[in-house]
Write a protein that binds this DNA or RNA. Structure first.
Lengths: 154, 154
DNA sequence: TGAGATAGTTAGCACTCATAACAAAATGCG
DNA sequence: CGCATTTTGTTATGAGTGCTAACTATCTCA
């Protein structure tokens, strides 16, 4: 498992990125990839992907939600949500209940097992989030969130 | 093109994201997606993807680079770089020259056409980058970059 | 010289994201 | 009411990206 980093030079130091290294977009990608990788690893014990956790969190916060709404707030295409909910339902974590007055839609809620798993996953998520917050350094969290929100609304 | 946002409520306001909305990771993803979408659109006239521009920038900054090195600094698998360079070379933007003393490797450099296209693409990129920087608001760019770097190194 | 490492390549798999088309049900307007 | 339109969930499918394994040619070095 010896890394091949000591070739003839340590590269990252010597090679210019042509201005990329001072670009918000480029580092934004690296940061996002790292965060997702870290969170995915943290959720591994629960066999949950990042989106799975997001879905569970949203359902917990507002039970009875329809798939369409979850897709909107999480920016997931509703067609792609089908498989996600399918799997969560097959694992007995989420229930597709009836929506009174609309037989097309499902009212999503957590099962007892889903609630239990979510609690454990939330602990892992909190630990992960702490690492991210620590990395913020001087940057104020609220200002960072505001900035990211504005960027997201480009 | 009338958005279907006025259903019975404007959702994003009413539905809780279960804490996700105050999470750096979640907004990081939204921001990154938005930035890439915006940059991709800005590069559309030049038929370049984001990675293509990155590759051209790196080659311009340090001509004679090998594919392996580019892959390392840009975090692109060297197997995936093959196709990218193939296309750039087929379009006459990049040249695979010989590396003196190593017949396995290629010394990459920009052609005149590549240099010309890059200049135009750089202008578009600068305009895009300005939008991103404007969105930073109070947050200092240098501090933002430093924070993103630390997050990327999680 | 010969074993092992390295550069580039090829092929294939997996995951995410997006679109189109569809059935069933709801909505709304004449 | 009746019928066109919209909406929800679903299915199928394609584009894009990323990762791994295996292979050839070449280089390195003991």
């Amino acid at each position: 498992m010896i890394e091949a980093r000591e070739r003839k030079d340590s590269i990252s130091e010597e090679v210019s990125l042509g201005g990329l290294e001072t670009t918000v977009g480029f580092l934004l990608r690296l940061a996002q990839v790292a965060v997702f990788k870290d969170l995915l690893a943290a959720l591994k014990p629960f066999d949950l992907r990042v989106t799975d956790l997001s879905v569970l969190l949203v359902i917990e916060a507002t039970p009875g939600l329809q798939q369409r709404v979850i897709g909107e707030v999480l920016r997931v295409q509703r067609s792609n949500l089908v498989t996600i909910i399918d799997q969560l339902e097959a694992r007995g974590l989420v229930r597709r209940g009836p929506v009174p007055g609309d037989r097309r839609a499902y009212a999503l809620s957590l099962t007892v097992a889903g609630e239990a798993l979510l609690q454990k996953a939330k602990a892992a998520h909190a630990q992960h989030d702490r690492k991210v917050l620590d990395a913020l350094g001087k940057v104020d969290k609220a200002q960072m969130l505001a900035a990211l929100e504005r960027i997201a609304a480009l």
